[in-house]
């Protein structure tokens, strides 16, 4: 930490107008975490709507098809592959990690569509009761975020040769793990609450 006559200067500060790679990484991580905070607030708002609506007299709990547990497993595996690739563990490289995670993400999305079809096959639609409305809504909101993250991941994969590839992969991983965690949270919410 550098100091001047007038006090300490933040460790990332320098008089060069263009940031170093480390500064860029720090800024991007900071921004991502702020963004994740807003997504957390979105989930919190939807959860509180869920809890309020749940006290209505017309609430009929819906059991999710067992497919949902396989989907969850696939999403968790996707997170694991991405993390291992990013750390270059278990014989995986960055490219294979990103590619593997993207592939598993695709499987998860297909699985979620399968989940909706399985629900529909049981005669449980969006309007069947408030619980089913929330199930479709929450899985949908999660899928939209996941698709956005998937696009980011594929762009990262396509531009691995450019600068800051490791940083961008790390950002992808953070976002991706967040979405995996969010999915586990949402699943717990609609299953047990």
């Amino acid at each position: 930490m550098t100091t001047t006559a007038t006090g300490t200067i933040a460790p990332w500060a320098s008089t060069a107008p263009d940031p170093t790679a480390a500064q860029r990484a720090m800024r991007l991580h900071f921004g991502l975490w702020m963004f994740l905070a807003t997504v957390t607030m979105l989930l919190a708002a939807l959860s509180s709507a869920y809890l309020v609506r749940r006290s209505g007299t017309d609430w009929r709990p819906v059991a999710l098809p067992s497919l949902v547990w396989w989907n969850t497993l696939v999403l968790a595996a996707s997170s694991a592959v991405l993390e291992l690739g990013r750390r270059r563990r278990a014989g995986l490289g960055l490219a294979t990690g990103l590619a593997g995670a993207s592939l598993l993400a695709g499987v998860f999305i297909v699985g979620q569509v399968g989940l909706w079809r399985a629900l529909a096959a049981q005669g449980i639609y969006l309007l069947t009761n408030p619980h089913s409305s929330f199930i479709y809504l929450l899985t949908g909101v999660h899928a939209v975020h996941l698709l956005a993250a998937l696009v980011v991941m594929l762009v990262t994969l396509a531009t691995l040769g450019r600068r800051d590839a490791d940083t961008r992969a790390a950002l992808c991983a953070t976002f991706w793990h967040f979405l995996t965690g969010a999915w586990v949270y949402l699943l717990a919410l609609v299953t047990w609450v």
Partner: peptide
């Protein structure tokens, strides 16, 4: 996001 990140991470040296 831009405003928060800029203020928090991009202050000039000495700008506590």
């Amino acid at each position: 996001l831009n405003v928060v990140a800029t203020i928090f991470t991009m202050r000039a040296p000495g700008m506590t």
